[in-house]
Nucleic acid binder design. Structure first.
Lengths: 124, 124
DNA sequence: TTCATTGTATTATTGATATAATACAATATT
DNA sequence: AATATTGTATTATATCAATAATACAATGAA
């Protein structure tokens, strides 16, 4: 299935995020070989050049590495993967709290709202 | 001061969000006159055309309206403003929960993490 | 009445993104 | 040995976003 992309941000950035998510959430494991650029591009329904850009950008963080002709691989540094997952979670939480604060909700109010939704699922 | 804009998304979208936030968070009130397109553009350090686009897009939601030569005004529908604030908060919460879920955190785990951070402020 | 301010419209130019179509060298695969 | 697959590079094209520089008509202010 084509990936879930929108038009509001550069596609290559969204591809980076999606792949990063697939890695830290366990779809791929440390040391795994990624599908080829062409296959990933087919799967995401984007141009191979765009996928290539996303992947080469991901290498700058050390999350993946490429071997010229055998393919591209996930880092074998398991601790790095765990750390990244934690960092992303932390970032989400802080961004969320800040967004709510901008709407005029204190951290305590926000916490209370989240509890309500988690326990009830209803709209606030 | 120039507004806080990044390069990852169209500026006019970020302007829309910022203005909408200024409205629902109480910087502007129902019926208030907005600064002129040119003044807002100066303040945000963007081109007047870009600000004009952001504002005209905002009109489609009914949040603001323009009077050809006297200026642009916030809606007088206070209930609409309150509803928007609530809707935005609800959206933030659900997006947040989904983001965390994609990282492998259940709603209950997420709630617990938020509680920890709100009460302690430390990194998880 | 005159002039400044308002939203709005127009034209042109620049830069980034995405796509398309190839091409190449190095390595696996057969 | 021959072929396919790999990441990577190049050139061209189209589109959108953003800026720049004006212009206009309607209204408010002086």
């Amino acid at each position: 299935m084509p990936w879930d992309l929108d038009n509001d941000r550069p596609i290559y950035l969204q591809l980076m995020e999606q792949i990063r998510l697939d890695i830290v959430s366990g779809k791929y494991h440390a040391g795994d070989k990624l599908p080829s650029v062409r296959d990933l591009a087919l799967e995401a329904a984007v141009n191979p050049n765009t996928m290539q850009k996303a992947l080469s950008e991901l290498e700058r963080s050390g999350l993946v590495y490429s071997q010229r002709t055998s393919g591209r691989f996930i880092t074998e540094d398991n601790e790095m993967l765990q750390q990244l997952r934690t960092d992303l979670a932390d970032e989400h939480i802080r961004d969320f709290l800040q967004n709510m604060k901008q709407l005029g909700f204190s951290d305590e109010e926000t916490l209370s709202l989240v509890a309500t939704i988690v326990k009830g699922g209803k709209t606030i």
